[in-house]
Nucleic acid binder design. Structure first.
Lengths: 121, 121
DNA sequence: TACATAGATGCAGTATTATGCATATAGTTC
DNA sequence: GAACTATATGCATAATACTGCATCTATGTA
C-alpha cells in the first residue's frame, strides 16, 4: 500500500501530469519535455525520474540522450488501470491539447542550445 | 485538471486510503472511523471531509451523527474509474483486510465514550 | 587527452501539508 | 434554557515537497 501512496503522490502534481500526457503521445527526451512545457532542465529531469521510479516509464539511452517512454509491458496491472483512468481524464482538456501540439514542434536539442535560444530572444 | 490534481492529492495519503477502504464496506460515522483505524477524532473528521470535498462521498446527518458513504450516483465518470482502480489495488492487502475486520466490531459510540474507554484500560 | 554537451543531483530556500490541542457549533435531552 | 455530546475547525508546530542554482557525471568529439 505504501507503493500505492507513492503512485498517487507522483500523480498529484500538475506538471507531472502534463509530462505523462506528453509521453502518451510518444517517447521523449528530457530536453523535449522542457521545451514543450517550458520548464527548467532540472525540473524536467526530476519529473521524468519520479515517473520512472514508481514504474510508469522505461528508460532508453542514446548517446547523451535519455529517452523515456511508457513501460506498458513491465507495468503492473493496478498501475495500468490508474493510468487508463488518468488518460481518460485528460481528454478534452485544453492545456493538455496545447502541450501535445507544442511537442510536435519540439526538436531534439540539448538544454544549452535551448537556453541560448531563449537568451537570444 | 486542477480537479484531477486535487483528487490525486487526496488519494496520496495512507490514512485517507484506509478510510476509503472502510467506506467500501459500508456507510460510516466519524467515530466508527476513529475506532477502526485508531486515529484521533479531528483526524477522522478531516479525512472524511477531504474525501467529501473532492466528490467521492455524500453526507447524511442523523441527529448528532454525520454519516458518510460513497456517492456513486453523484460521482463523475473519471472519479469513478479512478476509484475502481484504487479498489482493485486494495484487494489482498493485509492492512486493508485488518481494518475491515475491525470495522465490524466498531460501535456507534461517540468520541467521548471511546476516549473514556481508552483511559479505563 | 581535452573539451563540449545532455542529463542527474546536492543543497538551500520556500511553500505546502499533516496533525494535535483547544474550542466552536449544532443537535439532543432533561 | 442548561447540560451533554458528535462533529467541525482555528491555530501552531512539525514534517514534506517543490524548485532553482550550481555542480557533478557520463558520453561523445576533436
Amino acid at each position: 500500500m505504501r507503493d500505492l501512496v507513492k503512485v498517487y503522490k507522483v500523480l498529484s502534481d500538475g506538471s507531472r501530469l502534463r509530462v505523462l500526457n506528453l509521453l502518451l503521445e510518444r517517447e521523449c527526451c528530457v530536453c523535449e519535455v522542457m521545451q514543450a512545457l517550458e520548464i527548467s532542465q532540472s525540473k524536467a529531469s526530476r519529473i521524468l525520474s519520479a515517473l520512472y521510479d514508481v514504474g510508469f516509464l522505461k528508460l532508453r539511452k542514446d548517446g547523451l540522450w535519455s529517452l523515456y517512454s511508457f513501460d506498458w509491458d513491465g507495468m503492473d496491472t493496478h498501475l495500468k488501470s490508474i493510468l487508463e483512468a488518468t488518460k481518460q481524464a485528460f481528454e478534452g482538456n485544453e492545456q493538455m491539447t496545447i502541450d501535445r501540439e507544442r511537442l510536435k514542434t519540439a526538436e531534439r536539442l540539448g538544454p544549452s542550445c535551448i537556453n541560448k535560444r531563449l537568451k537570444a530572444k
